Amino acid sequence: MSTSDTKTANRPQLPQTGKQAPAFKLLDQRGEPVSLADFKGKKNVVLYFYPKAMTPGCTVQACGLRDSQSELDALDTVVLGVSPDPVARLQKFIDKEELNFTLLSDEDHAIAEKYGAWGLKKFMGREYMGILRQTYIIDKQGKLQHVMDKVKTKTHHDDVISWIKENL
């Protein structure tokens, strides 16, 4: 296997745009079940995967989305953040940063795997499996319209809003 084949083999398979987004049901910060089907026919969904609540990059990303809520509301769009954090930690993150959107707990990372957002990461020379910072934009019909697999935490909210304005 060549080096490029190895890199491709280690990269998780992303769901296909233009097709129905993978279904899910996860518990939110209050322990209430939330599913993708809850929004079908009603709202566009920004489903973003982040590694860990209350860490610097994840906080910057979440606060950018928090501060963009009125723009997202105007675009008929709801934000769902997904991490492997337990429900209690999600509520602490919401309280600490005054977040105004739903966070979902994917402790066994099964949904992250379905979306190709669980994979090999490298940090300080160490390799390990974890959440890949990725965002999926799903239209009101439940179809996956766009995958952002190169997310910049500082501009994530602007990138999401620009894409939705131009394409949905």
Rank of each mutant, 00 (worst) to 15 (best):
K43A: 12
N44H: 14
L47R: 08
L47C: 11
L47D: 08
Y48K: 00
Y48A: 04
Y48E: 00
Y48H: 10
F49P: 02
F49N: 05
F49R: 02
Y50C: 10
Y50V: 10
Y50M: 09
P51S: 10
K52C: 09
K52S: 12
A53I: 02
M54W: 08
T55K: 01
T55V: 03
T55C: 05
P56L: 03
P56K: 07
G57K: 04
G57S: 02
C58S: 13
C58P: 00
V60Y: 04
Q61R: 08
Q61E: 15
Q61S: 13
Q61V: 08
A62L: 04
A62H: 03
C63H: 05
C63T: 14
G64F: 03
L65W: 07
L65P: 00
R66E: 06
R66D: 05
R66N: 07
D67L: 11
D67T: 09
S68Q: 13
Q69G: 09
Q69M: 14
Q69V: 13
Q69D: 12
Q69K: 15
S70T: 14
E71K: 15
E71D: 15
L72T: 07
L72D: 06
L72Y: 03
D73Q: 14
A74P: 02
A74I: 01
T77E: 03
T77W: 03
T77F: 04
V78P: 00
V79R: 11
V79C: 08
L80Y: 07
L80G: 09
L80M: 13
G81Q: 01
G81F: 00
G81W: 01
V82S: 10
V82W: 05
S83H: 00
P84W: 05
P84S: 10
D85V: 01
D85I: 03
D85R: 00
P86E: 12
P86Q: 11
V87R: 06
A88K: 15
R89M: 14
R89W: 11
R89I: 14
L90K: 01
Q91Y: 02
Q91E: 12
K92P: 00
F93K: 05
F93L: 06
F93C: 03
I94R: 13
I94Y: 09
